[in-house]
């Protein structure tokens, strides 16, 4: 029997992060529109952040480092979202569709 209370067990956080990563990869493989793939990518970002924060809480001698790392991940995710959505808007303007099956001009 594990004596420590539930929020102080690192394996729960790591399992939730692994589950988020798995769901994100499943969505990334299954989605057929660009925006759906983008949302799944955000889930993968969240999994990485949660993993880093769990190690920061339970393993790191300096608890500031992980928080700053996750803060930078959030900033880069915001930048990525801005760029990706503008690309999606440009693609929609050219093709009238954001379905991945129809965007096959470079397919040859």
């Amino acid at each position: 029997m594990n004596p420590s209370p539930l929020p102080d067990r690192p394996d729960i956080y790591l399992s939730v992060a692994a589950l988020l990563l798995a769901i994100g990869i499943y969505g990334l493989l299954r989605r057929r529109t660009l925006i759906g793939m983008l949302i799944s990518g955000e889930l993968i970002f969240s999994a990485a952040s949660l993993n880093l924060m769990a190690f920061n809480r339970f393993r790191a001698p300096d608890p500031v480092v992980g928080q700053i790392f996750v803060l930078f991940i959030m900033g880069l995710a915001a930048a990525e979202i801005a760029i990706a959505l503008s690309i999606i808007i440009a693609v929609y303007r050219n093709y009238r569709s954001v379905k991945t099956r129809e965007l096959s001009e470079l397919n040859g």
């Binding site: 690192p10 394996d11 790591l14 399992s15 992060a17 692994a18 589950l19 990563l21 798995a22 769901i23 990869i25 499943y26 493989l29 339970f58 393993r59 790191a60 001698p61 300096d62 608890p63 500031v64």
Partner: peptide
Amino acid sequence: VSAAIFWGLWHLGAHQDWTAPATRLTD
């Protein structure tokens, strides 16, 4: 694929002994 990834990561995370560090530099 996603189930394999989840199982591998969960196995790594849950069967490890995560000991806390001896000292904390900051709060």
